[in-house]
Amino acid sequence: MRPFSYIRPTTAEEAVNAFADAEAGARFIAGGTTLYDLMKLNIERPTHLIDVTAIGGLATIDTSGDRLRFGALAPMSAVAADPVVAGDYPVLAEALWKAASQQLRNMATVGGNLLQRTRCMYFRNGVDGVYPCNKREPGSGCAAIGGLDRGQAVLGASGSCNAVSPGDWPVALTAMDASVEIVGPAGQRRVPIAELYRLPGDTPHIEFSLAPGELITVIEVPRETLEAGTARGSTYHKIRDRESYAFALASAAVVLEIEDDQVIRARIALGGVATRPWRATEAEAVLAGQRLTPERAIEAGRAAFRTAQPGRHNRFKLELGARTVADALLIAAERSRS
């Protein structure tokens, strides 16, 4: 690991200014569960760490208004255990408690989790010339394409990269139409979660639409469109190689609004199968105005993967993904009835 200087400012302004003053190589660090891990692997090589965890007021959870507001520094475990989140927003709570382990959820923040980097094994294990990777070394190539691609994306890949976006929480937030508040050198702005993530294209090393020195401060989830201000008819359904403590092979975040057995609106996002949190609008269209039957649910699931492009070893994700969506829809429908 490269040596780095370390500071721990107490205001967002100080943190942003420190970033601007630092030479190239500055990084913000919160829980560190991704960044410090990748520094040990010599993939991330910051020379200046700005620890943002002492910034005041950014760890609050506010569920009292017409929008749920989660301070970026709130630990994943705290948001998962919040009574309103756990009771009324199962899609959010499940995306959090089904991720990582309680130890890591105590460390990782809900803001930092949005910026978690891929678990692609060629990205993680091929540093210093072992495997090329366009994320690590732009322009070097991609060993995963045509390689051992069982875990790779079937949606949103390019000729440069097919690495899966690893998160669960960003997938749930995508289904909930969340947005993030950002502060940076140019002031404050708000970005819909859908615009935070970039497709790999020819520049897979640029994963987020954040400018250098920008810091996510708050995650906001609208609640006013939902009946009674809750999302009880929702779920985050996660399928893994083992029952717990693993990344998704396929996952589906589903938020349903149902009236008289008819789907008013279904919002569906996919994880584990795409290069970014993936909104499945084709699947949503299949359901709008329809009665939700098991047949319709699997039809919607298949629609989500109509444009999928599997490689040599990950074709199974098409069927697994479709069934994951179908199961998630039926779970959410059951919950919306109770």
Partner: peptide
């Protein structure tokens, strides 16, 4: 040493964490 096994678990401020992925500075 990568937060995957739990053998390094300790409590910091009353909460369990992976000490291998916690900077001592923190």
């Amino acid at each position: 040493d990568h937060g995957q096994c739990g053998a390094c678990t300790v409590h910091v401020d009353g909460r369990r964490v992976a000490s291998c992925l916690t900077l001592a500075a923190k």
